[in-house]
Design a protein around this nucleic acid. Sequence first.
DNA 1: TTTAAACTCTATACCAGCATCAGACTTTTA
DNA 2: TAAAAGTCTGATGCTGGTATAGAGTTTAAA
Lengths: 278, 278
Amino acid sequence: MRGALFSIGEMARFNHVSIPTLRLYDKLGLLKPAFVDPETGYRYYSIHQNARLDMIAYMKELGMSLAEIAQVLESENLAQIETILARKNEQIHRQLIELKEQHSAVERALASIERYRKSPLTGTLSLEYIERRYIWGIPCKNNFYLDGLDCYEEELIELRRQLIQRNIGQIHSYSVGTSILQDDFQNLRFIPHQVFIFTNAENTQGLEATLLDSGMYACIYLDGFDDEMACAGRLLDFCREHHFAIVGDYLCEVLTEFNVFDNQKRSMFLRLQIPVSF
Amino acid sequence: MRGALFSIGEMARFNHVSIPTLRLYDKLGLLKPAFVDPETGYRYYSIHQNARLDMIAYMKELGMSLAEIAQVLESENLAQIETILARKNEQIHRQLIELKEQHSAVERALASIERYRKSPLTGTLSLEYIERRYIWGIPCKNNFYLDGLDCYEEELIELRRQLIQRNIGQIHSYSVGTSILQDDFQNLRFIPHQVFIFTNAENTQGLEATLLDSGMYACIYLDGFDDEMACAGRLLDFCREHHFAIVGDYLCEVLTEFNVFDNQKRSMFLRLQIPVSF
DNA sequence: TTTAAACTCTATACCAGCATCAGACTTTTA
DNA sequence: TAAAAGTCTGATGCTGGTATAGAGTTTAAA
């Protein structure tokens, strides 16, 4: 037992921490060695100091920072530990929520890629039943059909600004869309009405989201905004050929964004939609 | 619009990031400005680059590191995103489990302090009903009753080692105890039998924990190991006076450890227990 | 046109909780 | 007695930025 004193390496092994960690704790005053050789500076620890190291490890497990731990160890105040623990509890709660959101974001991202893989080819026309959705957005100030993508970006900037103002930070967790009023669309007047995010009833804290009821939609898939107007025209033709009655506004839904690979322009996969009845 | 180019400050405002962040992204190659004035070094961004910044923010929300993001942006490979996302999903899962454990550890700590507050004074004898518990431990090699606290520390080191070997790292989340065989105890032979942790059926992955059935226990509370033998003696007397039949091994349970305030010795609050029947 | 205000540049340090060196010294083992 | 293993101090790096300092640039008002 050599007088019940251990070298730093032994102490590290016993307590399953690293040597630099012990040196750090020494420097921070969390755990001073029981004895330091004044000649060589070698650190020697007593076996009793395991207890202190246990306590440090425990507090670390509770998620406390070394500074907090040092504070507690110094103040020797039980009530303060309780305060810190209560605070830590709240923090864990927040982290838990954040992590869950992250998790669902990742799931959505994976689903989105999957969906892109299985989506029909660009230009495909279809008639689909779409479940009820909610949207929240702002009116468009510019006409990006006339003035190009720059204006669309400006609308997005404004939408983001407003969302952040309402404490809905994570715009990326939602998919974006734009609309044209029914009447305008039926006459092929490409005048943007709204730019919005799709949301669900749950996460509309503070937002008065608009309900889009479930129903049949005439749809066309395409990648990129460039062909939107042409495709929208085809979609209208499609409706007329089959004598579908248009019963609502035109929607352009961004299914997946792949602006990863291009720092010049957004490249997206879109689904244009018109609600119809028969 | 000045040719659709923005200064770094404007870009930062539009996208709700800080200027240093943009500079960092530039340096890391995540987002190079569309134009850099070769004379002044001023950065100018195109409005189209919002999309790229969106994507970066999105990937950050998914919990990816900047290095990972750079990798994806460089490789331009969709399959790789999927790989990274899947990996991230696992990581989130692990973090979630960890966080939940942390949470319950904090709760236990708070409960433990509460319990300490409400525990009887040291030396109090009592007869208590204790719910069923599980323990897992190792035989004692040394007699810490004879050889002092140092030997107890050695046992703890070994217990910890074995637990870590079995992937039960967080010993601090459990409370510790020691036992003496019934026969030894009844003859006041202080020969440690086991050192163990209290656990519950759920988290005994891989451990064959021993069941301690519910029942009545004669108990005595005390703070610190120093008086354990004396108190154990009083406990035995207590049983004999009241004609309790001892029906199992003697247990010494560490209710709360306050090794915070003392780097020389552990200071604990203990409950000595003997299962009895009438 | 001048001047002041606002902006931007680079470079550096800082945060936590260590890990990982380098270069010099000490202890233990063969 | 020499070699191997251990330890010392001090510096540097990691992440995702923030916050400085000191110098230069752009923009707006006077």
